[in-house]
Design a protein around this nucleic acid. Structure first.
Lengths: 109, 109
DNA sequence: ATACGATATATCGTAGTTTGATATAGTTCA
DNA sequence: TGAACTATATCAAACTACGATATATCGTAT
C-alpha cells in the first residue's frame, strides 16, 4: 500500500551511510524517541524483504576497518531504495500538509 | 509499533468530519494521489479495530439527511482517536525533518 | 580472571494487517 | 434497461510485527 514503517525507517537510516542491523535499530529508536522499536523479528525480516526487492544490498566494505566487529553485516541503500524512500517521504509530507491545512486542532511543535 | 497506515488515513479523514466507509476510501485515495488505496478488506478490518480500540465510534447522526443513502454507516473520531492521530503526526513530522536535515538528496517539492 | 551489560545476528510461533477476489445490493443517469 | 458507480461485507492468502529465545562476541570494571 505504501512502505511499511519498518522499511521506511531502515531506508531512512541507510540513506546517510552504510549500517549494520544493530545500528539501524538504535538509530531508529533514537530518531523516534522510542516510538518505533525494531526488534530482531521485524528488523531481519524487513532487511530480507528489502534485499529481495532490490532496495538494499549487503556490502562487504567495512566503513571503519580499524575499529570493527566481525559479527556485523553491513547494508547499503540502492538507487531503487533511494527512489522508493523519496516517494514515501513525499507522501508523508503531503499527509502533514493536509493535517496542517485542515483545522484539526493540530499543529507541529 | 506505530499506527498502521490504514489507521492513520482513516483517522485523518475523520478528523475534519464524520464519514462513511466509502467516503474514507475515496478521500484517502485522492489525498495520496492513488498511492494509498484502502480496499474493503483493509478498510473494514481497520474500522473494526479502531472501534474496538475506542479511537472511532459509529454514529447514528446523518450529516445530510435530505440527500442520504440508507446503506451508509457513519463513523466519528473520538478524543482518544484525535490524540493518537496527533502523536502519529508528530512522529511523521520528525521523520520529515530528519530527512530534510540529513543530506539525502531529498527535498520536498 | 571473570562477571556483567551491551553489542550483534538469527529464528520461531503467534498475532495483527493488507491484498485481491468475491458477494450482494441500492443509486444514478443515459 | 443497462451500465457504471456507490456501499458494505467476508474470505483466504500473503505480508508484517511482536515477543521470546538462542547464541556468541565485545568492552570494561572489579
Amino acid at each position: 500500500m505504501a512502505l511499511p514503517t519498518s522499511h521506511l525507517h531502515i531506508l531512512l537510516t541507510l540513506a546517510t551511510e552504510d549500517r549494520h542491523g544493530y545500528s539501524i535499530m538504535r538509530e531508529t529508536e533514537e530518531l523516534t524517541d522510542g516510538q518505533v522499536k525494531l526488534g530482531p523479528g521485524a528488523l531481519y525480516a524487513a532487511l530480507g524483504k528489502l534485499t529481495d526487492d532490490g532496495l538494499v544490498v549487503e556490502t562487504e566494505e567495512r566503513p571503519a576497518p580499524e575499529l570493527d566487529d566481525a559479527r556485523r553485516r553491513y547494508y547499503r541503500i540502492t538507487d531503487a531504495g533511494r527512489s522508493a524512500l523519496g516517494v514515501e517521504l513525499q507522501r508523508l509530507q503531503k499527509v502533514i500538509a493536509y493535517a496542517r491545512n485542515s483545522d484539526l486542532g493540530w499543529s507541529p511543535t
